[in-house]
Computed example of a mutant assay.
Amino acid sequence: MAKKEAGISEDELTKRIKRAKLVNQDEVKEAETVARIRTLTEQEETMIKKVDKALNALRSLLQDCPDDFFSQNHGIKKKTEIDRRIHLAMSLKNLYNEGGLAWLDVDYSAKREKDIVSDKNFSLLPLSKLAQGVTNIVASSTAWPPPRPAINSQAITRRVFRHKSLANENSQRSKTKDSGSYERFEFIGDSVVNSTLSFLLYFAFPQASEGELSELRSTFVSNQNLASWAALYGFGMELQVTDSVAKTTDVMSNTKVFADLFEAYIGGLTEEGRSEDAQSWIMALALPGIVRQKRLSKRELPLDKLAKVKLYEALGGIEQNKVEYVTERPAVTGGQGEDRLFTVCAMVHGKVLGRGNALNLRDAGARAAMDALSRPLMVAEARKEGYSTL
């Protein structure tokens, strides 16, 4: 029992006791919260140390792992099955060389990135999501083209597809906000398209220089490419123009207009607060082009004229593992781009180990062998299959 002080009523004493108890309870809660935070901080620090240790170990492994391990060791372990952990290491090295482990090159000790740009209507995808999207590029089996994310607002949708000619005509009749054209949406959409593709290319091509990345981006953001994406979804059928403009101009087939429509649609999604949906859509549309560019970048590696010999040795140098170089696609006389190139497959036991493209069959065959050598697991399996028939 609390001792009653002189001159203090029973009610006042009761109130003081209650206040003291409340203060004590708050202090206890605060102490418990501090203890929980300290425990979580200690757990975070422990996890961070373990993650750093694992990342450094993996980086060290990839650095020490030679690209041509199997050919280097031919003759030392001719028939002995190589440890599966070596196969795993080589698979990781191959995946890293193809850009599939781009997250390994990220400096995680730096201040953590939140959204690159963020407010209630506009937020770029976090770097981690972009990096994950790139990591899954080669293995992606998602149907293409991806579904178009619908804009929920009818007012925004109308404006996205309204040409300035119709907007000007409407503005003479009405002063409402909904009478504008798609040009304002195009402005912000252009920014989102450029930013998203810049980050995507940055992670997809970790070895590319600034100039090479700029050149790649210009291909993806070109009017021709954006117009082709718009055409996939029939944007031209939804474009609203005045009859006079439709009859007297090429607006309904103009590449620049279609590209602007695509950017306006991205802007419409952003206006609706769905910029992440817009970016995911852009990434999905760009995936085939990314894969194609990665294959082209492989072809630009210095030609190894001894690649066929190295592949023969990696397969054990036996008749049972003879490599057949089959022309998959001949070059087109007077063709442009990839049509100018021969495509050759390196096949063993009826299975394709690698493909190569070049201006002549000899170099295409060498590049097919180089491609096969970059897949050590497949080479090892083919080698084993040949030896099993001896």
Rank of each mutant, 00 (worst) to 15 (best):
R367H: 03
I76M: 02
S118H: 13
L197Y: 06
S214C: 05
G180I: 12
T249K: 08
F205C: 03
D250I: 05
K77S: 00
A20I: 11
N24D: 15
I282Q: 02
T196M: 06
R329W: 01
A368E: 02
Q132K: 15
S9N: 05
G354E: 01
K77L: 00
S297P: 00
K114W: 12
G234P: 08
H349E: 07
N24K: 15
D11E: 13
A368D: 02
A369N: 03
S244K: 08
S71G: 05
K53Y: 10
I151D: 00
M347W: 02
E385V: 02
W229A: 03
N321H: 02
E271S: 10
N97I: 08
M347D: 05
F122Y: 13
N254K: 10
Q172G: 09
V138Q: 12
K129V: 15
T33E: 13
M237L: 06
L22E: 14
I17A: 13
D178R: 08
D119K: 07
D115Q: 06
V326I: 15
S191H: 08
K164L: 06
Q240C: 06
A230Y: 03
V348R: 00
A6M: 08
D119T: 06
E381M: 10
E12N: 06
V326P: 04
P149V: 09
E313T: 13
I151C: 05
E27C: 11
Y202F: 13
V117K: 11
M252Q: 11
P206E: 11
E169V: 06
M283H: 04
L61I: 14
D26T: 09
N225Y: 03
P288A: 07
L232N: 08
G99P: 10
E10T: 09
M47V: 15
I188G: 00
L124T: 05
N94E: 15
V34Y: 09
Q132M: 15
Q172T: 12
D243P: 02
A110Q: 14
V134R: 03
F262W: 15
V34P: 00
K114H: 09
Q320R: 05
N360M: 07
S181T: 01
S91P: 03
L200N: 00
N121Q: 07
Y108C: 04
L377K: 02
K18M: 10
K3V: 15
N357G: 01
R19K: 14
G99L: 06
E30Q: 14
L269T: 04
S191P: 00
K256E: 15
G234Y: 05
D105T: 12
I48F: 10
E113V: 04
G354A: 04
Y325L: 13
G7V: 02
S123Q: 13
K120W: 06
Y312E: 07
A54N: 11
L62G: 05
E271Q: 10
V309S: 09
I76Y: 01
M47F: 12
N24I: 14
A89F: 01
A155M: 09
Q207H: 14
T135G: 07
R299D: 09
T176H: 10
D371W: 00
A278C: 04
K247H: 07
L296Y: 10
N121F: 09
S280T: 12
G133C: 12
G356A: 06
G234T: 03
V138S: 14
L125I: 13
S198F: 13
Y182P: 00
S374R: 08
D105P: 04
V138L: 15
P206A: 08
R16T: 07
I37M: 11
I266W: 01
A20V: 11
K120G: 04
M1T: 10
T248F: 04
